[in-house]
Amino acid sequence: MASESSINICEHELLSQSQKPSSVPDTHAFTQQMGTTAVTLFTFAQAVQKWLRYAPDRAGGTGRQRQRTMNYMVLWIIFPISLSLVSFIGTWTVYGLAFTNNHVCSLTDWGSDNYCKGNQSTGCCLVPTISSSGTSAPENSLFTATINAGSFLFLLFSIFHHAHVMERHTCHSMLSRFALVFGVVAALGAFTAGNCNPGYLALLHYLGAAISFMCICFYTVLLTALTGKCSLTGYEKILYPLRIASTVVQTIVTICYTVLFAQDEYFYVHLSAIFEWMLSINLELFELSFAVEFCFFSSFMLSNLLSKREEEKPLMMTMS
């Protein structure tokens, strides 16, 4: 009897132990849980890394890496200043030489009877446009050098500004690319006009000048729009209205210049010359205003035009 009772007790203990939940963990479930946790931690680490790399500057709201801000070189301000000064000093020096040699009439003489008519080229003066100032020797060499230098600097200006926008505001990359196209075409048009003397290659000269003036109008409009959309310096509240005014002046004066240039009467042609000089000065002031942006420019930004962004590579691989 004692043995039977002990057997019954052992069976009861075994039955109760079998009904308890097993303390041995499920290996498959544990593995899935660890995998999910690892993926979550990896995603979180990527997010933290991205936040650290592209944490916004609380003061300006548009900063990038703090290490990159150390690369900002105030010396880049020399570039837009040089572009404006080269154009301003060069063109007015050419006009001074041409006026001294009696190759162009005075800008203040509205009723000159000595201006060249038709095929007349000797014993008279040309209408004092920028182009006619660089027609004759010796000022034509300086005119060509000035236009070539200005075209090259303007081309670099367009590329650098595009790189700046691509570094800070890729969401407006399409608008910046359109501006870059107009800037490049304007530089090529000016280069053509500068190297084709209007006295010998008038068609190519005026075609290049027309393309340059038209593209500059669109370029100023697009750059002003980018100023309103992109915060590159923190001074856009001041720069934006100034550039709007400059763009409006550039557009209106370009239209007036185009209409008056085709007239035959000297007064209107002379007025078109005044408008052309106004276009030149207004553009130089517009370019000079970008000295503020170039205070925040860095040579690192140019690498965006040569290589893909690191964070875009996985997305491109996924799409392919």
Rank of each mutant, 00 (worst) to 15 (best):
S173R: 09
H172L: 07
S141D: 08
L153Q: 10
T220W: 00
A190M: 13
F218N: 00
V104A: 04
S112P: 04
L126Q: 04
A209C: 07
C116K: 07
L126D: 04
R168D: 08
S132V: 02
T135G: 01
S133L: 10
I130S: 03
V127F: 10
L153F: 11
C215E: 09
S141W: 03
N140P: 11
A225V: 15
S136R: 02
G183H: 05
I159F: 14
P128F: 01
P198D: 14
D109P: 05
S121P: 01
A137N: 12
S173T: 02
A225I: 14
T144W: 02
S173W: 06
H169N: 11
M174L: 10
W110I: 06
L155I: 09
F191P: 00
D113E: 15
H162I: 03
T122Y: 05
I216L: 15
A193I: 05
V181M: 08
A145K: 08
A225G: 00
H162D: 05
L107R: 05
H172P: 00
S176R: 01
I216V: 12
S106D: 12
M174E: 10
A190L: 15
C105P: 06
F182M: 02
T144D: 08
S212V: 07
T108I: 11
L126W: 01
G189W: 02
M166Q: 11
G150L: 08
K117Q: 14
S133F: 09
T135S: 06
N148D: 10
I147D: 03
R168L: 13
V165N: 09
N119L: 07
A163L: 06
L203W: 10
T108A: 11
S176F: 01
G123M: 07
N119E: 14
N114E: 08
T122D: 02
L188I: 13
N140D: 13
G118A: 08
A163S: 15
N114W: 03
A225K: 04
T144F: 08
S112G: 05
Y200F: 15
C116Q: 04
G189E: 00
A163Y: 04
D109Q: 07
M174H: 06
V181S: 06
F160A: 06
C105L: 01
C215M: 13
A186I: 11
Y200C: 01
D113P: 09
S141L: 10
A149C: 15
L201V: 09
F218T: 02
I159T: 06
S112E: 01
L223F: 01
H161D: 02
F154T: 12
L153C: 09
S173I: 03
L175N: 07
T220Y: 00
R168E: 07
F213A: 12
S131N: 14
F191C: 12
C125K: 13
V127A: 11
T220A: 07
T135I: 07
A202E: 10
S212R: 09
